[in-house]
Design a protein around this nucleic acid. Structure first.
Lengths: 209, 209
DNA sequence: GTCTATAGTTGGATAGAC
DNA sequence: GTCTATCCAACTATAGAC
């Protein structure tokens, strides 16, 4: 059925198939059989490319984190005009939310991966790295927003970013349950106001009052 | 091995065993076999008490939610003195955190249940109810704190509580990964400061300056 | 009414064919 | 080097014994 392929290409194909399955039906639906079937290869081919199921899951988790890095970097394009801090933070959070809302299943999957990784000692590093990457992305996003506005934080950027990350996580999780995107956006808006207050120097660009 | 028992008692026993398994090893470890084995009964007994595995899982989710209600109610005891708003909010959040920190596995399980329920159309109501209950608990806790201080919120209590709930969720999730309880407590402390600013009337009891 | 013994399904892994 | 055919373990569910 499927033509003979070098192992590296097969691996990539199977990894993508596994991610498709997980995104669509959850991590519990990822079985060696299901992946083989969806990819159109025999069962054993998966075990030829991945020593066991755990290696496949670890590769999936790694890919998701890598994609996160890429998406985070892509979202950090600077606008032409120079906004005040609150406007910059609103842009950052609303832009972030737009991409979250467009990838519901992928968001749900990241929470599944996190809890899954926390239960499996072998995947502990995956969860750690997931947050490390998210933390860096948050610092990048908030750092750029404050640079645009020329503002200076009154507390370490890392801690500001950690709080923002926690809030976005919580808001996203609730949105996954209640589906209320309007409420989620409003909560992020409120949080932008809070963040904008965490500065020692608000920068040169102040909003018209 | 195990003596004959009326179905209601068996059901309660098996439900508790299932929760113990899930708390210890995750929801994926909850199999009909494992529950039967840990409870010391034959396999079929579980199917006699629960029509199928889904009913067992649904019952587990319901029990967790019920326990949440109970724990929330228990935490709402009023102290003797009358604090200012920020002190009251700190008490509320730090007390909440103490109970979260003491039940790490149970916290992880609630996130697992949430994502699990979101993947299973039949359990959709479980996730909804999980948040409904949490929301009510949050409103209760924050409502009491502000009543103690005699403060009046500038926005609907429901929305204040929703934001606090989101933040606590996010902070807890991260703590599950990085284990940094000190950082978590500090984040909740910062959030208490934010909340204390969300009033139209801070109440009669002001902190000594 | 309660529990046991057994059937049938799905899953992970591997020896060996090409 | 790549893939197929097969094995064995673990699971859910039920028919029927006590």
């Amino acid at each position: 059925m499927s033509p003979r392929l070098p192992v590296a290409e097969r691996r990539a194909q199977l990894l993508q198939t596994a991610l498709d399955v997980a995104t669509k039906d959850g991590i519990a639906a990822v079985t060696v059989r299901r992946v083989a079937e969806d990819a159109g290869v025999a069962l054993g081919v998966v075990h030829y490319c991945f020593s066991d199921k755990d290696e496949l899951l670890a590769a999936m988790a790694q890919r998701i984190v890598d994609d996160l890095v890429e998406a985070g970097a892509a979202g950090l394009t600077e606008p032409a005009t120079t906004p005040d801090l609150m406007t910059a933070l609103e842009w950052a959070l609303q832009g972030l939310w737009t991409s979250i809302e467009a990838t519901r299943d992928a968001q749900l999957l990241t929470y599944e991966i996190t809890t899954f990784a926390l239960r499996q000692p072998a995947l502990r590093a995956v969860a750690d790295r997931q947050y490390q990457v998210s933390q860096e992305a948050a610092e990048g996003l908030i750092g750029i927003a404050s640079e645009l506005a020329g503002a200076t934080w009154s507390r370490p950027l890392a801690e500001i970013a950690a709080e923002a990350l926690a809030f976005v996580d919580g808001v996203t999780l609730r949105w996954l349950v209640d589906g209320d995107g309007v409420a989620a956006r409003q909560r992020l808006q409120d949080f932008a106001v809070y963040l904008a207050g965490q500065v020692s120097d608000p920068g040169p660009n102040q909003p018209a009052s």
